[in-house]
């Protein structure tokens, strides 16, 4: 314990108050709890959506048809694929294959970027047609669009945070940090990314298809 040596290149970092297996499980439980808080963050929006949909069913149908479901479905596929690569990244981490972690996490981040670009085109088309809050056509579907922007906006924010988190994982993998007995950051980052996917799985039919 009293070695003056620097952090080991591989293997779990030394933590003074618990052993590395406990640290791994603690980090994972902590991340799941954090995901629980994220679910509740979105729960408010889902509740608001449910109640306003009940009030204004026609408006929600009409508003939903105004969204481009092809773009929505493309984004769904992009996120599902990114979730797949994130899961494979954890698998690579479990096997200590840092090169594969770099590649797979890189693909995941790229998918996140594609998602955001598509989202940007959707938003800007809405803006040009005057469907932003405060613009002329907004009042047509105000409750639907208000929640659409809040939900997708918050989701996009999570995509950005997730990309940041995965970039941190990627840098660690580049330094060859992960091994079969230490891959906690990959798993934590991937869990967060899967949540982004999970939320979108609900948002897509809710906003683009059923309305």
């Amino acid at each position: 314990m009293s070695h003056a040596s620097a952090q080991p290149l591989k293997g779990p970092p030394h933590i003074h108050h618990m052993d590395s297996v406990t640290a791994y499980h603690a980090a994972k439980l902590g991340m799941w709890l954090f995901l629980a808080t994220e679910i509740l963050l979105f729960a408010v929006l889902f509740t608001a959506f449910a109640i306003y949909r009940w009030y204004n069913l026609e408006e929600f149908h009409a508003g939903s048809h105004h969204l481009n479901w092809i773009l929505g479905m493309t984004n769904t596929a992009v996120l599902l694929f990114s979730s797949f690569t994130a899961a494979l990244a954890v698998d690579a981490g479990q096997k200590g294959n840092n090169k594969a972690v770099v590649k797979l996490v890189g693909v995941t981040i790229a998918c996140g970027a594609i998602f955001l670009i598509i989202k940007y085109f959707e938003y800007s088309s809405k803006y040009h047609h005057g469907y932003f809050p405060g613009q002329a056509n907004y009042l047509e579907f105000k409750n639907f669009l208000g929640l659409y922007y809040c939900m997708t906006g918050l989701h996009a924010l999570h995509v950005i945070i997730g990309m940041g988190l995965l970039t941190w994982v990627l840098l660690k993998a580049k330094k060859d940090r992960f091994s079969h007995d230490y891959y906690t950051p990959v798993e934590i980052g991937a869990l967060y990314w899967h949540l982004v996917d999970l939320i979108w799985i609900y948002l897509f039919p809710l906003l683009y298809l059923v309305g």
Binding site: A48, N56, P133, K142, N143, G146, L147, Y149, C150
Partner: peptide, 12 residues
């Protein structure tokens, strides 16, 4: 932004 979630003027 005036999204109209709680504002009764905007149907909230």
């Amino acid at each position: 932004m005036g999204v109209g979630v709680f504002n009764p003027d905007l149907g909230g």
